[in-house]
Design a protein around this nucleic acid. Structure first.
Lengths: 241, 241
DNA sequence: GCATATTTGTCCGTATGTATA
DNA sequence: CTATACATACGGACAAATATG
């Protein structure tokens, strides 16, 4: 069984055991749990940009009512992970080059600002080091997903040098949006792999307590990554309208 | 009639003609309109921090169903303007000193970063100039509310130098949260008035194309404002538990 | 500590408006 | 223009949790 839906296909196995995704099962409301499950599927690439999310099929798969699912959609809409087309339904967002440029302008404020204001050495560098090591390990195992994830963690750790919870939360949102573009790139490994060396290099100068050198390295990384992702977004836009 | 609610009192006149607040009546959904009205009441200080927002009474006052109002609550929760206590209801948020410090760390990233990356002169400086002039006019008229509002607009204009839509949106959220603290200060005029001169000064050096001097002035402003608001938040926390 | 009243959390059925075929 | 499909919003129902006396 596969649910044809608006041009993109929603494979049944994506929905398979969506209802028992027992990470947060308690504490949060039903809507938040539903949003958590959908967010995870988007972040790990199973729900690709452009996919339509029909209320009835998803509600059934998640074992929640339509109202509850709509609440989950609202949450995801505000995270910009899905978009609401008037009277047409909810779709996984597809980012264009403009979005990529905007996201990277914000990343520069967050990451370079956090670096400039950091007092080194900081506890957050431990998180950064762990992320670098995890990335190198994942690359050795040819684990594309893992390389991407630890790259995200590394840059999230950079922002946490700012010691602002809200800044970290904004960064989480930025990275979640960017994930949507990562999955449009044909070879994610080729995208992330060259950055492993730079992350290591950046970590080294930060541990040496040299934020100025860090800003230079980070700035170059952001420029390159922005260009590559913008190209991917451009390409994808022409492919699928 | 006054609705006793959990310790804070929800005066009837606050709700009086909440339903015909005819600014955005079309285009937006009922939930968004309801959220707009509530947000406005919080921003202009009629709904004070700690106030409980009962679904029943508010739904009636806003002429929306409970489901729609709950959706409005969700929007405001995401903006951190209200907080949801499970099975206890929704309350206007009360910020502590920690929140103030966190918000100012984020402001520094956004505002100082925007300044550092700005190419001057920029179109956004027009917005900044208008805000400065509006602030001086409001002060001359002893319009406290107006002074505060134009100060917000001025700093929003600073961030828009970053040319990032998302950064501006984050800044809007930050300023909305800070409003909640402004209303805890006994004399809002005393809070904002000394900053009028600094805003004018900052505008001048920016128009001269000197971002470095701007960063110094802005940095001092942020330090002073943070200290004052943190003190206000501290005081308030002890008053109302 | 207990019983009652109130409020919230969740879900359903339905009526209305709007876009698309 | 009609018909269909869908989103939007409403009102009601019931269980669960909480506040009140």
């Amino acid at each position: 069984m596969s649910l044809r839906a608006g041009g993109s296909e929603l494979q049944a196995w994506v929905l398979a055991d969506l209802s028992r995704d027992s990470r947060v099962t308690d504490r949060a409301s039903a809507a938040e749990r539903a949003a958590d499950m959908l967010r995870e599927r988007m972040i790990d690439g199973y729900l690709r940009p452009g996919t339509r999310l029909p209320e009835d099929a998803l509600g059934e798969a998640l074992s929640v009512s339509r109202n509850t699912l709509r609440e989950a959609f609202r949450l995801l809409t505000h995270e910009r992970l899905v978009e609401h087309r008037l009277n047409r339904g909810v779709f996984v967002r597809r980012l264009g080059p403009d979005d990529v440029h905007d996201l990277y302008r914000l990343r520069r404020l967050l990451e370079l600002g956090a670096l400039a204001g950091a007092v080194l050495p900081a506890p957050a560098l431990d998180d950064a080091r762990r992320a670098v090591e995890a990335g190198e390990l994942a690359a050795a195992r040819d684990d594309h997903q893992g390389v991407g994830t630890s790259n995200m963690h590394f840059h999230a750790a950079i922002v946490s040098l700012s010691a602002s919870r809200r800044a970290q939360e904004v960064m989480r949102g930025v990275l979640a949006e960017l994930r949507l573009v990562f999955h449009e790139v044909d070879d994610p490994m080729r995208l992330h792999e060259p950055y492993l060396r730079r992350n290591r290099e950046l970590l080294t100068v930060l541990e040496r307590g040299d934020p100025a050198a860090g800003e230079r390295i980070l700035g170059e990384y952001l420029d390159d990554a922005e260009a590559e992702l913008a190209a991917a977004a451009e390409l994808n836009q022409h492919d699928h309208g």
